[in-house]
Design a protein around this nucleic acid. Structure first.
Length: 537
DNA sequence: CCATGCGGGGTGG
DNA sequence: CCACCCCGCATGG
């Protein structure tokens, strides 16, 4: 019954909320469908905002405000937007401008697939993880293979049948289980002129190639294949590595063009991190400055790559990102990774200025603890991203990185997911967030509000915080503080306190170092990864 | 070919 | 009821 209707109707139908659709999103339907809820109080939002401005929170604008993707009413009249974050990780929230193309496209560096949450106003996407070599072989350049899982189910199956370009063993899809055992989820909601983004879960696997990288590589491969020199696919495969690199270079070129915004690359080093700032937990994401800020971009030299590569391997290698290696302690994982490289990246965004606690996510990670042991995620990103088409790539991470390291959080505590078997389970967190999807209101009907996750935000924001209510309260009429609260707390504590102390750390390390890992059975994957895909072949 | 979205359905807590 | 997952369908690049 509904089906038929869906396409056309949807627009109408769902429109209930639509108050504004103002912008066109990448996908038309989307825009129409998911719109925001009726806007009600513009006013309030404002006040809130003002408050925030004043405060010097270190978090992203989105994090400053207390809102949840499921709230019937999201902050209105948002004047300040966060810069697009390509590699969000952890429980973070951003508010992007409706004009941000990357946001309109609901892009992410992670391979996210659409998930039906039966809520037309909120687009939910879940992480597919990363495709790695079943033998965890090391690529010629010392990195590890970390392909971007195909979003399309069919394509993904095909992809998994391919062999590792380097050692010919079969490829393995490492699923994401960063959100209470489920894949990390990203939620997108268009409301008024803003695009609200909320992520739940901490990726427990290395980063795959970004979309732009993958695309670039593909096109490069195609070209090659078509060229007389490489008539056969096989050849192509063999030469993969080389290509892989090439493609990047190509990308590089491309990217540079986009606007200034795009890039904001910074050396991580630059970021100072202020430990204290981390408010609480989540938020942390750095926010990028509003668009206006222009970025400084630099183009990063590709050299980075090289440098970076080495480092990571074992010893340090933290798990991919997140974790900390002992040695590295002070620095955030990313940093560690990138450090040398200099490049880094993109990730670090000057703009961000803020830090994230989580370094985002990282901090959180412990929670996840899943089993695998991978390591380094992408050092490559950095450069890759930089160059990436740019469009979205660039910005992405900045924030996250910024956190860099220093924070106590990082220090060792975080296990990477891969690591060990255990490590702390941290159930609490997980639990918490899970809620996400609950939308209080259903597709078109506004109704109850839930406030779940906000709590933590608040905390994080501390200063920033709560504001909403205070001020006016109105915005959210009913706020419920669900269970989360408790949870949140725990989570927080966990992070703050427990992390450091955990004994696990040691274990984790080992595990990751040695490859222990648990469940996944994924052997350790140390080092960085290289990623290339075979997809092409 | 595939990335993306939509949404019906089924499942398990 | 909620959250998740799977699957097919459609659109668009």
């Amino acid at each position: 019954m509904k089906e038929k209707v869906r396409n056309e109707q949807s627009d109408v139908f769902h429109i209930c909320n639509v108050s504004s659709l103002g912008f066109s999103v990448g996908s038309t339907k989307l825009s129409s469908k998911r719109i925001g809820i009726p806007s009600v109080h513009g006013t309030m939002a404002k006040s809130v905002q003002d408050q925030f401005d004043e405060s010097d929170c270190v978090c992203s604008f989105g994090m400053k405000l207390t809102w949840d993707i499921n709230d019937p009413k999201l902050p209105q009249d948002v004047k300040q937007f966060d810069g697009f974050q390509e590699w969000t990780d952890g429980y973070v929230r951003y508010i992007y401008s409706g004009d941000d193309k990357n946001a309109q496209r609901h892009l992410s560096g992670w391979a996210m697939r659409n998930t039906n949450n039966h809520n037309c106003q909120i687009l939910k996407k879940s992480c597919l993880g990363v495709v790695v070599c079943g033998r965890n072989c090391t690529l010629p350049d010392g990195s590890k293979l970390q392909l971007r899982p195909a979003i399309c189910d069919k394509a993904r199956q095909k992809q998994q049948k391919k062999l590792c370009p380097s050692c010919n063993s079969s490829l393995e899809l490492v699923p994401c289980r960063g959100h209470s055992g489920y894949p990390v989820t990203n939620f997108w909601r268009l409301d008024g002129k803003a695009i609200f983004f909320q992520a739940k879960g901490v990726h427990d696997h290395p980063r795959p190639e970004s979309k732009s990288e993958t695309e670039a590589r593909r096109s490069a491969v195609k070209r090659r294949m078509s060229s007389p020199h490489f008539p056969q696919k096989k050849r192509a495969m063999e030469s993969e590595a080389a290509r892989y690199h090439d493609s990047f270079s190509n990308i590089h070129h491309l990217s540079c063009l986009e606007g200034p915004d795009r890039f904001r690359i910074i050396a991580e080093t630059n970021f100072p991190i202020q430990p204290q700032h981390y408010p609480s937990f989540q938020n942390t994401e750095p926010y990028k400055l509003p668009y206006d800020s222009s970025s400084s971009v630099a183009d990063a030299p590709s050299q980075l790559q090289k440098a970076s590569s080495h480092r990571l391997y074992m010893a340090q290698t933290p798990c991919g990102y997140e974790f900390t290696v002992p040695g590295y302690i002070g620095s955030s994982p990313y940093q560690a990774l990138y450090k040398d490289s200099t490049n880094q990246q993109t990730e670090a965004d000057p703009g961000k200025v803020c830090m994230q606690l989580n370094g985002p996510q990282h901090s959180v990670s412990p929670l996840n603890v899943h089993e695998r042991n991978y390591d380094v995620p992408n050092k490559h990103h950095s450069w890759k991203q930089l160059f990436g088409k740019g469009s979205y790539s660039e910005r992405g991470d900045y924030g996250q990185i910024s956190g860099n390291g220093n924070h106590h959080y990082y220090d060792g505590e975080y296990p990477c997911r891969y690591n060990g078997p255990n490590t702390a389970p941290t159930p609490a967190l997980q639990t918490i967030i899970t809620t996400t999807t609950k939308v209080s209101y259903q597709p078109c009907k506004p109704s109850v509000v839930k406030y779940n996750d906000n709590l933590y935000d608040v905390k994080g924001a501390q200063n920033c915080n709560s504001l909403m209510e205070n001020g006016s309260g109105n915005v959210y009429q009913e706020i419920k503080i669900p269970e989360d609260t408790g949870v949140i707390k725990s989570a927080l504590n966990y992070q703050q306190e427990s992390l450091p102390a955990k004994s696990e750390r040691g274990e984790s390390l080992d595990s990751y170092r040695y490859g222990t890992f648990t469940s996944g059975g994924y052997p350790e994957r140390l080092s960085q990864s290289f990623r290339y895909d075979n997809g092409e072949y």
